[in-house]
Amino acid sequence: GLPEGWEMRFTVDGIPYFVDHNRRTTTYIDPRTG
């Protein structure tokens, strides 16, 4: 799974992105792969 505090969501286009609730940021880069 994802690191603690992270969540995976999808855009309206079906593109996955990642929400970091710890820092309240979003990124398209998987936190597991950097």
Rank of each mutant, 00 (worst) to 15 (best):
T33I: 13
P3K: 05
M8I: 10
M8S: 01
L2G: 03
V12R: 14
D30Q: 00
T11L: 03
W6K: 01
R23D: 13
T26L: 11
G14Q: 06
R9I: 08
V19M: 08
L2I: 05
G34Y: 12
D30N: 00
G34V: 13
W6Y: 07
I15E: 06
M8L: 09
T27P: 02
G34S: 14
T11W: 02
G34T: 14
T27Y: 08
T11A: 07
E4Y: 11
G5M: 04
G1L: 14
H21V: 09
P16K: 09
F10R: 06
Y28T: 09
I15Y: 10
N22I: 15
T11N: 10
I29E: 12
I15V: 12
D13A: 13
T26D: 08
T26Y: 15
G5Q: 06
F18T: 00
G5A: 07
G34A: 14
I29Q: 13
D30V: 00
D30G: 00
H21R: 08
F18N: 01
T11H: 05
R32V: 06
I15F: 07
G5H: 07
H21K: 09
I15P: 03
L2E: 00
F10Q: 07
H21T: 11
T11R: 08
D20H: 08
M8R: 05
T25G: 08
P16E: 06
D30E: 03
V12E: 13
T33A: 13
E4M: 10
R32A: 08
D30A: 01
Y17F: 13
D30S: 00
G14T: 01
Y17R: 00
N22K: 08
V19Y: 15
F18E: 01
G1D: 15
E4V: 12
M8A: 09
E7I: 07
R24F: 14
T33R: 07
L2P: 04
R9E: 06
I15D: 06
P16T: 08
I15M: 10
P16Y: 05
G34I: 13
N22D: 12
V12P: 14
G1R: 13
G14L: 07
D20A: 01
T27E: 05
L2T: 02
G14W: 07
R24K: 15
T26E: 14
D30H: 04
G5I: 04
R24V: 11
W6H: 01
M8Q: 10
G14F: 06
F18V: 00
T25E: 15
N22P: 08
G34W: 13
G14P: 00
T25D: 08
G5E: 04
R32H: 06
T25S: 07
T11P: 01
T33H: 12
P31V: 02
I29D: 10
R23M: 14
R23T: 15
G14Y: 02
